[in-house]
């Protein structure tokens, strides 16, 4: 037994290497590597069936991986599941509380299961109810809670044991926008309190709101990772959109840009429907050069704007290029 089981701030709270899980022919996870830095939020972004939930279930010792290693707070999921369970909290897509019990009884039970004394368990339950604005509903059975209250109770239940690593598996799936905002606020508070969070989501907006870093997975594989702005840059930086006064000039503009051979400028396209020329750029110098060139060639320009790709576009660009479906579709189209 080593002394430094827990990692220091800035260290890795979660380390996953080559993780694989197959269900028959289906590769739920097919060699996933990822790290979550202590005290940060890692967003795991992916469509339905990408393997997000399998990843969370392996990291919370519910499912055993077929290959690869995963360590949480220094504990191995396979050889040290008991220790690992002491430091994690899990909130899944489905409320994992006892619906017949009141909010207070649920939290009290969890406190007792975490070896708190009766008195401490009661105090902790009340503290959590207060914090998650459930005090008024404390005595009602959870089955009578609204969707948002139930999710909050679920979060509260995950927090009773002061977990150092928290898994949120699609925490706002199926919630209305107001309730979703409530959950986001709670997560932001947890992070402010020092929790390390692994968040899976299908919503780009959610990842942008909550996550410091992103790992994009599709079909059990990591297809991109990094900070959100890094990922955006990776997908093409900004798009410069130029609107000519006369739409008929679109092809001539594109041709002029292609022939000019400006440094790093390639792939200008005409969007006939919108009446725009789209030019991918990565720097302000390129923006100046493009505008200068068009001015020098006497094009009449009605409007210019730059457009940062949304996370949706990032995701579409990343998965669209890589998924087998998209390729098959292209082949059929061609």
């Amino acid at each position: 037994m080593t002394l430094s089981k827990t990692t220091s701030r800035g260290g890795k709270a979660v380390e996953v290497r080559g993780l694989a899980k197959h269900y028959g022919e289906t590769k739920a996870l097919d060699g996933v590597d990822l790290d979550v830095t202590q005290g940060t939020v890692l967003g795991v972004l992916g469509p339905n069936g990408a393997g997000k939930t399998t990843l969370v279930r392996i990291l919370s010792t519910l499912v055993k991986p077929d290959a690869g290693t995963a360590r949480v707070a220094g504990y191995d999921v396979l050889s040290q599941p008991r220790q690992l369970r002491r430091v994690i909290g899990l909130t899944g897509q489905y409320a994992s509380v006892d619906e017949k019990l009141s909010g207070r009884e649920n939290l009290y039970m969890i406190g007792r299961l975490l070896d708190l004394s009766r008195k401490d368990a009661r105090a902790r339950a009340d503290e959590m109810l207060e914090r998650f604005s459930l005090t008024e509903a404390a005595r009602r059975p959870a089955m009578n809670y609204s969707g948002g209250m139930r999710r909050r109770l679920d979060l509260a239940a995950s927090m009773v044991g002061h977990p150092s690593v928290l898994y949120l598996d699609e925490p706002t799936t199926g919630l209305d926008p107001r309730t979703r905002n409530e959950v986001w606020e709670e997560v932001q508070r947890m992070v402010a309190d020092g929790a390390t969070v692994l968040l899976t989501t299908q919503y780009m907006e959610e990842a942008e709101q909550l996550a410091n870093e992103l790992t994009v997975i599709d079909r059990g594989r990591v297809i991109a990772e990094g900070r959100i702005d890094e990922l955006k840059a990776k997908v093409g930086g900004r798009t410069l959109q130029i609107r000519p006064v006369d739409r008929a000039e679109l092809p001539r503009m594109v041709a002029a840009l292609d022939q000019a051979g400006l440094d790093g400028i390639a792939g200008a396209t005409a969007d006939e429907a919108e009446g725009l020329v789209n030019v991918p750029i990565v720097s302000d110098e390129q923006l100046t050069a493009v505008v200068g060139l068009l001015g020098a060639r006497d094009f009449s320009i009605a409007g210019i704007s730059t457009h940062l790709p949304s996370l949706d576009e990032v995701f579409l660009a990343l998965t669209g290029q890589k998924t087998a479906d998209a390729n098959e579709f292209e082949e059929v189209g061609a």
Partner: peptide, 13 residues
């Protein structure tokens, strides 16, 4: 079915 078992099985009991 309700997922409460997931909670129990991720606890140190």
């Amino acid at each position: 079915k309700t997922g409460v078992m997931d909670r129990f099985r991720t606890m140190p009991i």
